[in-house]
Each structure stands twice: as structure tokens, then as C-alpha cells.
């Protein structure tokens, strides 16, 4: 059984505050009971499951949508209060009965969501007592719940702070460790680089010394600077040939060269003839066969 108490005003009597208690089982659609009181008198009434369905079909509304609308009107206090209005009017048929109606106010028109007959309670003090007791119970319950939540919150905050502190420590530790490792790494690395620098220096020093020695040796060995050693000159000019050289080759190389030359020339008869008849052409033939080889 759920209960909800709220404050409302009646359209026909705006100056007075009424207390409306709605009680229901599970869902408002299953029907509900209401208790109304203005502090002096009290009225009670009931709406059955069938009444709700009938009310919904009368308004040509889906039941779920209708119940939703009912909830907004009767239970939820969050919606602006002026959207829904209530009225309590004396029933013309019976002096003991009143009609409690609830309406939804739209821009220009308002439409009735529902109404029920409520009857005057003989002993309103009892009803009012019950109302107050329910409210007090609710308040106590809320307070207990509130305290519990606050404690829980406090615990979570403590845990959070604790965790944060630890995380902070770990992160700082990681940062320090990293920095320390990098520091040591750079120290060792720089020592190696220093060594490499030293070795490099030594290498270039010794290279310099070597080239200096070479230069010194050269200057000691060689003739005055505007002449070039013969050996080097020979090397450079070897590719070219002069008449004198060919002649000198002819004289020096003849015994070695002439034999294979003859063997080759033997295969070319007319050349052989010319070779035998005209000795003067020999130098030309020699160069010819040399390129052949």
C-alpha cells in the first residue's frame, strides 16, 4: 500500500488549504482511495479499477495515458500546481455527500479528468490524526535514509581521498623513478659519448700526424717543387703513343711479339704475303693485332 499526502486548494474555496491523501496498491490504475481534510472536517472516497477504466473510455483515452494523467494530477507535486485544479462541491442529492473533481487546465479550456463522490467522516479527528502520523512516519523514514546516505557519502569521500592520495603518491613515485633512471642513463650515455669524442679526437690527431709525416717524407724525397718525378709522368702518359715509342717497342718487343703475330697472320694469306714482301708495313700491322688481342 502506497500513500501520498499533498496540499491542494479547491476552486470554489481558494483561501483554504486542503490536504489530499491518495493511497493505492501498486498502480493508480488498480483504483485508489482518497482522504480529504481541511483541518476541521474530513471526507473519504474510493475509485475502483472499473471506474478508472470507465473514466478512460469516456474520455476516449488509452488507459495507460489516462493513468499517467491521473498520476500527474493526484500524486506528483513536481509539476506546476496551477496545471491541475481541484474542486469539492456539495452533492445536490445527498447532504452527507460531496463531489471531488480534478481538472487539467489548458490554455483556454480545462477538461475534467475525473470526479468521485466523497462522504463526510463522522470522526474527522481520527482521520486527521492518521494523516499527521503518516506524515511524521514519512519524515522519520526520510531522515533515517538521509543519515544513512550522508554516512555513505562521507565514507565514499574518505575512500576517494585516500585513493587519490595513494594514486598521487604512485604517480609522483613513477615520475621520480623515471627522472632518476633517465638521469643515470644520460650520465652513462654521456660518458660513452665523451669516450667516443676522445677516440675521435685521437683518430683525427693520428691521421693528421700521418699526413704530416707523408708530406714531410715527400718533401725530403722529391726534387725541387716545379718538376715532376719521371715515374709519375710516365704513368700518366702511358696511354698515348709516339713514333719514337713505337719504334722502341718494335726493337725491344720484337722477339716476343712477332711470333704470335706471325701465327695469326698465317691464317690470313694475303697479309702474310704483304708481311713478307713489305717489311715497312710491320708497325701498322702490329698495332692492328694488338687491338685484336
Amino acid at each position: 500500500m502506497e500513500k501520498k499526502v499533498r496540499k491542494i486548494t479547491m476552486n470554489s474555496n481558494l483561501g483554504i488549504t486542503y490536504f489530499l491523501q491518495v493511497s493505492w496498491k501498486e498502480d493508480l490504475g488498480n483504483g485508489f482511495a482518497i482522504t480529504l481534510s481541511n483541518g476541521h472536517s474530513a471526507w473519504i472516497g474510493e475509485v475502483s479499477d472499473n471506474d478508472v477504466s470507465k473514466e478512460a473510455s469516456d474520455m476516449e483515452m488509452d488507459k495507460i495515458a489516462y493513468v499517467d494523467e491521473l498520476k500527474k494530477a493526484m500524486i506528483l507535486t513536481a509539476t506546476p500546481s496551477n496545471k491541475y485544479t481541484f474542486d469539492l462541491i456539495k452533492d445536490e442529492e445527498s447532504s452527507e455527500q460531496y463531489i471531488f473533481s480534478y481538472e487539467k487546465k489548458l490554455k483556454e479550456v480545462s477538461f475534467k479528468i475525473g470526479s468521485l463522490k466523497v462522504r463526510n467522516v463522522n470522526n474527522p479527528a481520527e482521520v486527521i490524526n492518521e494523516l499527521i502520523e503518516h506524515c511524521l512516519n514519512c519524515a522519520t523514514e526520510l531522515q533515517i535514509n538521509n543519515e544513512h546516505l550522508q554516512k555513505e557519502n562521507e565514507r565514499l569521500r574518505c575512500d576517494w581521498n585516500d585513493m587519490h592520495e595513494k594514486l598521487n603518491k604512485y604517480v609522483s613515485g613513477k615520475e621520480e623513478l623515471e627522472q632518476e633512471l633517465y638521469t643515470r642513463f644520460t650520465c652513462v650515455l654521456n660518458k660513452k659519448k665523451e669516450k667516443i669524442r676522445n677516440l675521435k679526437e685521437k683518430l683525427s690527431e693520428s691521421q693528421q700526424r700521418e699526413t704530416q709525416q707523408k708530406i714531410q717524407q715527400k718533401s725530403q724525397d722529391s726534387v725541387p717543387f716545379d718538376t715532376v718525378p719521371i715515374s709519375e709522368l710516365k704513368d700518366e702518359d702511358y696511354g698515348g703513343s709516339t713514333d719514337e715509342e713505337v719504334k722502341s717497342q718494335k726493337t725491344t718487343l720484337q722477339p716476343d711479339l712477332i711470333l704470335p703475330l706471325r701465327r695469326q697472320l698465317g691464317k690470313i694469306p694475303h697479309l702474310k704475303e704483304r708481311l713478307c714482301t713489305n717489311q715497312k708495313t710491320l708497325p701498322i700491322l702490329m698495332t692492328f693485332s694488338l687491338t685484336f688481342n
Binding site: E178, Q179, F185, T186
Partner: peptide
């Protein structure tokens, strides 16, 4: 015994 730590931007460079 190393006292002087490498600055953070040097770590980034490394």
C-alpha cells in the same frame, strides 16, 4: 650520489 636531475624537457627530447 648524483644530485642534479635531468630537467623534464630533456626527458622529452631524449
Amino acid at each position: 650520489s648524483i644530485q642534479e636531475k635531468v630537467p623534464l624537457d630533456m626527458i622529452a627530447d631524449l
